[in-house]
Nucleic acid binder design. Structure first.
Lengths: 146, 146
DNA sequence: ATTCCACATTAGAATTATTCTAAATTATTG
DNA sequence: CAATAATTTAGAATAATTCTAATGTGGAAT
C-alpha cells in the first residue's frame, strides 16, 4: 500500500539527471531530498546507509556510494571535504559556504549571498573556476577580543 | 663530513616547538623548510617519505606521519584538505588561500593579503574562528564569458 | 504481457591512506 | 657512562572507499 504511488517529483529529478529511478536510488533520494526526513543535510555514505537500513530499505553500502557520486555528478548533491578520510555530501547545491565545528565534526551552511569574496587573482590560462569553497573552521572557546 | 655542523636554525626551530631534534625530524625538516629543496611546498606524507628515501635518509613512513602531525601542531606546517582520502601539508603557514587544479591534483598558493572576505556571519556563541580556508577549484577549459 | 539487454545492484575482496602497537633505539640528564 | 623518557620502527590493524564478477531489474521492443 505504498508501492503504487511513485514519488513522482523525485522520479522526474532522477530521470532528468539521466538516472533510472530504481528502488534504491528512489529510497536514497527520498531520504536525502524529502523535506520531512531531511531538508538541508550534510551526510556521509555510512550515515545514509545506516538511515536506509533503519528505514527498512534494503540497499548495499556500495550502492550508497555509487548513488551519492551519481547524484553529485548530476548536480543534485555537492561534496564537501573538511577532514581527511571522510566525505560529506550536502543536499544544498546553491552557492553557499560552511562553518565547520572542529570539535564534533558538524557542518553548518553559510548562505552565499551575504558573503563577498574580493581580490581573487584570475585563474591561470586554460583553466576556469569550477567552484569556490569557503570553510570557516570553528573551535570551542570564546573569541579573545572583547 | 656533514655530521658535525648541525643545521642550527632548524635545530632551534624544533627545540622551540618542544620537539627533540632527532636525525629523522631534522632530515624531514630540512626537506620541508630548506629553501633549495623546498620553499613553499604542498606535500603528502607518501611524497615526503619517497623524497627522504631517495635522499638516502632512513626514515619510516610512520615517522613521517608522526613528524608531519607534530610539525602541524607546532605551527610549522598547515594541513590542507582538498580531496577525500589525501592530506597535503603546506610549508607556508602565513595567512593565505589556494588554487586547486582538479585535473592533476596540484595546489597553488594565493597570497592572503590580496583577498578580502566580507559578510561572514559571526560564529555561534562559545566558538571562535580557528581558520578560514578558501579553495578555488579549477578545471581545465577556458572560462566561457569573453 | 514476455523477452531481452543494457544498466544497476550486490557481497565480498581489494585498495589506499592512515593509525596503532609493542619492541628496539636514541637523545638527554645526572 | 648509566638511567630514563622520548622516539622510531616494522608490521599489523583500521577506516573509508573502490573494485569485481555474478546476479537482478527497468523499460523498450516485440
Amino acid at each position: 500500500m505504498n508501492k503504487d504511488r511513485p514519488y513522482s517529483a523525485l522520479v522526474q529529478r532522477l530521470k532528468a539527471a539521466g538516472l533510472r529511478p530504481t528502488r534504491q536510488r528512489l529510497a536514497l533520494a527520498k531520504l536525502l531530498f524529502e523535506p520531512q526526513s531531511g531538508g538541508d543535510r550534510h551526510i556521509t555514505a555510512e550515515q545514509l546507509h545506516a538511515e536506509a537500513v533503519a528505514g527498512a530499505v534494503r540497499v548495499s553500502l556500495a550502492t550508497v556510494y555509487n548513488s551519492l557520486h551519481q547524484f553529485t555528478g548530476a548536480g543534485l548533491l555537492r561534496e564537501v571535504v573538511v577532514e581527511p578520510g571522510r566525505s560529506y555530501f550536502d543536499t544544498n547545491v546553491s552557492d553557499h559556504h560552511h562553518f565547520y565545528f572542529e570539535d564534533g565534526g558538524r557542518l553548518q551552511d553559510i548562505p552565499g549571498e551575504q558573503v563577498h569574496l574580493e581580490g581573487l587573482p584570475t585563474p591561470p590560462e586554460g583553466t576556469r573556476v569550477a567552484r569556490i569553497d569557503v570553510i570557516v573552521r570553528l573551535s570551542d572557546g570564546e573569541s579573545e577580543a572583547s
